[in-house]
Design a protein around this nucleic acid. Sequence first.
DNA 1: ATATTTTTGCAACATTATTGCATTTTATAT
DNA 2: ATATAAAATGCAATAATGTTGCAAAAATAT
Lengths: 139, 139
Amino acid sequence: MQTEFLSILKKNNLSVTESRMKILELFAQANGALAHNDIEKKSKLQFDRVTIYRTLQTFVEKGIIHTIPTADNSVLYALCKDECTQGHHNDNHVHFICDSCNVTYCLEHSNSPSVILPKGFKQNRVDVVVSGICLKCNA
Amino acid sequence: MQTEFLSILKKNNLSVTESRMKILELFAQANGALAHNDIEKKSKLQFDRVTIYRTLQTFVEKGIIHTIPTADNSVLYALCKDECTQGHHNDNHVHFICDSCNVTYCLEHSNSPSVILPKGFKQNRVDVVVSGICLKCNA
DNA sequence: ATATTTTTGCAACATTATTGCATTTTATAT
DNA sequence: ATATAAAATGCAATAATGTTGCAAAAATAT
């Protein structure tokens, strides 16, 4: 596990630091997406707020994590799959937010459906966010 | 126009106040969605920031406007169509954010495609946000 | 082992959002 | 039309969130 995080950082030409390793670990442990605040709580007093902001920003730039749009103003982040590279995210999958437990899932195997746009509109990227009740809460 | 705003408020059992009328007007004038901050700027010094927060919140609750998810942390609001009622939004349409001019459109006639979820997940609502180049910027 | 580069923590600051309460405005009942 | 009740507003205080510069510390390269 640790070695996996290590190779992620190496692969992206990032220095291996305690905070980066820890934050990668938190994402791996989480069964869903994390907000900045979640990370802050889970790593209580371990490192500065600013470090978390900067780490998340770096990870997004490098294509290690991606942001998930939400209707409220919270910014969520989740681990990207291998196909993501710097400057190009391949997060063309559906995100699911559970109304009950509030966990956000990346549904890797539900590809975003294509949308028919009016004439003159050129599509660049599509985000699909479904909300409802997740597998666990439904049981 | 004024009478329309008035009936919207009446219909929702809301007192008719200057700020509410003005904010409805701003939404009607805008060719896209508005952020809290847009409203604050456009109504400079007319009313308090807090009033804007509260008005937006009330409008969302009543189903007069709806929020639009965005990948950055900004919260956008747009007028709902008639089918929306208190507690139930019917904003089942695609939102389009122009990467160039940053205007957000509600594409009323592009219905959100249905998404196939994994077993056990129950769908409640779908938000589709497409980004790209809009009609005006494309010309 | 040392020099260079990068990251971190701290402090200060900016922006965005929330709450309580007194005042004002709007709606209601006479 | 006026008095009363109900609701909305503005202000102040506070909280939460996000950003920047810079010195100290840690990681990498030589």
